[in-house]
Design a protein around this nucleic acid. Structure first.
Lengths: 355, 355
DNA sequence: GCCTGGCACTCCTGTGTGCCGACTGCTAAC
DNA sequence: GTTAGCAGTCGGCACACAGGAGTGCCAGGC
């Protein structure tokens, strides 16, 4: 199809310049503008010929006959993959990210939310974050606490700072010593594990060794289960009002479609989650991915692009950051921002949560 | 000023009808429309005279010379206070509220968020909820857990399901028995209390009685403090995209102003929180309040109204629900929805959280 | 004295027209 | 292969104009 060889050096430069110019101005780019603003060494007529070929090859689109050219999905794709200069974080951005995480919260939910605010503020687009599933949290502690002969409190503490806890009533008296013994056995067995490694069968095994009553075994099992269970996937989004500034969303119908997607967390989750799954199966490179227009497989998002990047906890990608904006987004900058923020977030999680 | 006697029966009916019609159509209401759609018994010329007087008295406004009339803040205010029929929840709405809370989450944060989704869905406007401050949560349990001679885990469990927990390292060995004794003393002293009643001095008193080491006392104090502390006030909002359907927000600048307020949780909180404070000082009636246009004291919200209603935990108003929408909102229905939802939310909290 | 029909007036809104400018594609010459 | 020039296309904007909705006022009637 459109092989690299389709694009000689000059054509590639013209394509890159059209994309660059369109990203900055939001106006279709014409041949004269191009020769005036950029030093191309040839006349506008030559550019016109080249642009006509680029259109025939599918890289550019003309909104109407007497307008300039606008990049197509394929045009953006080529720009992102081959033509664009990778950008580094600016000093200022790096500082703001560092400042944010220096005094960030220790509560996972808050950190995730604050991260989306940071990223939307820096990027001027909509920022999204998927929080680590509870399954990936580190087990920290379980304690069966004697309240009265027939009632106990069972608490599970994980690295998420989230403690599943419930009070149980027993049919017969239970001694505080028994509870302590069971607590100790569970803690020594599960210490250092991640929650998803602790199956009901593991709990059963420990209980069986100590001859624990069936009610207590079931109680412990259920508390572990609810410490792992994650009703809704945790997802946060911020900066929807940034999209209003983009001329492509001045159309209310488009805007509404986007806002609906943002409020329906399920859709937002699906949009990004498959990248997370892929991240842990393939040899993970933790590099940012860009999906452009129809690549998102959602009609409402046909004029949008998404930059996604996983963040790590230990050696594993546990969550995703994403930036959603118009296709006409400054890819280089946003990729740098997303990567930098993901790295800092990962470091913060490792600093704060593992002890 | 504009006393009740200003409005004879016919004028009041005309005002009510204009407001009602405008709420339904979003179009300025003219005298002919009024006579045609409503059985007024007089000609349009008479209505014109009355409407001119209502305008002079400040209840109506004319967008431009050749347009019909639109209610002013004062017009809406009079409508809400004196002219409107109170509405009951429709069977369908009542059922949907009931269904929602029947299988609602047991986690406070989730409940609050789900409630805003419910309320925005039912009302077709933006719904906001302030979660109960952690100070109002009931103390449930504290436990000092022996991990090793020199390290312990301190856990505080409250009705919010939120456990403050932290691991401490001691300068000298500490026995498991001492920790248990202190735990028991704290639990029996604080059982049945609300978090805000547990001051550092109370912790100190218990520790002093048991001759607890200063480091341990400080550790317990700090965990209690962070169990109470509430960095950001918890606030949730949902349904911003509903506002797009309202013709008054087709102006992008207005829309952006509103969205900015919604994303800045602080502003949103301030908007509603004073009502909550008032609720617990005066003799609380827990009835809905309506604030209209400039009564909101925010230029961006000059064309909006807010319905607020507190919800109760026990006998105390602990949080607020609010509906934000255009002034042209169906006040009767929204008041019924907000009240009904607040009542169900309160009942749910009492059912689930207190045991 | 209140109500009403009629009428002149105001002003928004939608539509049609024509012009301007931006840009292209093509051709012929270099 | 490149370029200048030119004709052709089309969107956007300003403008004028007609239509319509609604008002305020006045004179006459019950």
């Amino acid at each position: 199809m459109n092989d690299k060889r389709d694009l000689d050096k000059r054509k590639a430069f013209i394509l890159a310049t059209v994309v660059y110019e369109y990203i900055n101005t939001a106006e279709p780019v014409g041949s004269v503008t191009l020769t005036q603003k950029y030093n191309l060494g040839v006349s506008s007529a030559t550019i016109r010929n080249e642009m006509a070929e680029l259109e025939a090859e599918g890289y550019l689109v003309q909104p109407h006959t007497s307008a300039g050219r606008v990049p197509s999905d394929a045009g953006y794709r080529t720009y992102v993959d081959r033509l664009m200069q990778p950008e580094a974080l600016t000093k200022d951005d790096a500082r703001r990210i560092r400042d944010q995480f220096r005094d960030a919260s220790r509560e996972l939910d808050d950190v995730i939310e604050q991260t989306t605010r940071l990223l939307s503020g820096l990027s001027g687009n909509l920022a999204i974050a998927i929080a680590p599933s509870r399954d990936t949290h580190a087990f920290k502690h379980v304690q069966l606490i004697w309240l009265s002969p027939r009632t106990s409190l069972v608490v599970v503490v994980t690295s998420g700072g989230v403690a599943a806890q419930r009070v149980f009533e027993w049919p017969a008296d239970v001694g505080a010593d028994d509870l302590t013994r069971l607590s100790n056995a569970l803690n020594s067995r599960f210490g250092g594990r991640v929650m998803e490694e602790i199956a009901p069968a593991n709990v059963d095994a420990v209980c069986a060794e100590l001859n624990v009553a069936a009610e207590i075994r079931d109680a412990v099992r259920s508390v572990f289960a609810s410490a792992r269970q994650t009703g809704e996937p945790e997802i946060a989004a911020a900066g929807a009002q940034n999209l209003l500034d983009q001329p492509e969303f001045h159309d209310l119908r488009k805007l509404r479609a986007i806002l609906r997607i943002v409020e329906e967390q399920r859709t937002l989750y699906d949009l990004i989650a498959d990248e997370l799954a892929a991240e842990n199966t393939a040899n993970a490179d933790a590099s940012p991915h860009v999906r452009i227009g129809h690549e998102l497989r959602a009609d409402e998002l046909a004029e949008c692009s998404v930059v996604t990047v996983p963040y790590r906890f230990g050696d594993r990608a546990v969550g995703m950051l994403a930036i959603l904006g118009p296709r006409r987004m400054p890819y280089g900058r946003l990729i740098a921002l997303a990567s930098g923020t993901a790295r800092s977030l990962g470091e913060h999680l490792n600093d704060v949560e593992i002890r």
